[in-house]
Design a binder for these strands. Structure first.
Lengths: 133, 133
DNA sequence: TATGTATTCTGTAGTAACTACAGGTTCAAG
DNA sequence: CTTGAACCTGTAGTTACTACAGAATACATA
């Protein structure tokens, strides 16, 4: 059996603050947890994983709706194989585009650090290089 | 000289809606544009680039504050070389982490599409695979 | 030139996703 | 048995939009 955690511990381990956890619960993106006699929330290690996942996704620009759609793949929804493939493929496409944009950005930023390290004050054509015509 | 654009055209070209453009202006992340006699905003191709950049960054999970910090590198702020290097390096670090998280996600998603394509209904251990212990 | 329709203007109100209290209860260490 | 930390619910504030309302301007065409 897995060790049970109070909300504060979940918050610490998943790096999401307490009120956000309660907010996610209200939004239905986190399931209603078990409670102690006195009404305190009880979590376990799976909740840490799920919440960390949500947190990372948010940091990558996914909306809560998109995250719900990703999580629905986990939550044993009654999807057909075709539906799963469609949802998944569309997310994969989105992810690829994000990666490519970030890689461009990385290249430019590293070049700037490089140039700057040599004492140059770069002219910073960052926008041009990233997304210029 | 560059052709001048009304706000609607800027919105179309940068894929950002009109009220968001005005919102960004109020927040100071877009400079106050020139105006016509009658008070209508006038933009040019540089505004399209800047705004597209902002839009993409938002989609990648950067906050407006972070984007301002990135843009400050462009806006000929009076930074020392050391400051530029620090700001840039920190963003580069962040970008690398985002890329790595997205690559993990891509791998898992593609594997799911693959499995699904073969007629399997996958058991979708997506969270486990992505961010599991 | 008149007129209708599209575009823009300012300003305010609503939404999504948090974040920060306020005021009260519970737990646990000394 | 007290006292402080952690938790509870509920509400109000913040960020980043988004959607009107109501008025002015521009532009096409009859």
């Amino acid at each position: 059996m897995t060790k049970s955690l109070p909300i504060g511990e979940l918050a610490r381990q998943s790096d999401v603050n307490i009120e956000t956890i309660r907010f996610y619960e209200k939004q239905g993106i986190l399931p209603n947890p078990a409670r102690t006699e006195s009404g305190r929330r009880i979590y376990d290690q799976d909740d840490v994983k799920r919440l960390s996942f949500i947190h990372r996704c948010r940091g990558l620009g996914f909306s809560l709706k998109e995250i719900e759609s990703l999580l629905s793949l986990v939550d044993a929804g009654d999807y057909t194989c075709k539906e799963v493939r469609e949802i998944t493929a569309s997310h994969a496409q989105d992810v690829k585009q994000k990666i490519s944009a970030l890689q461009k950005m990385e290249t430019v930023l590293e070049a700037m650090v490089e140039r700057c390290g040599k004492g140059d004050v770069p002219e910073c054509p960052i926008i041009e290089e990233l997304f210029g015509s």
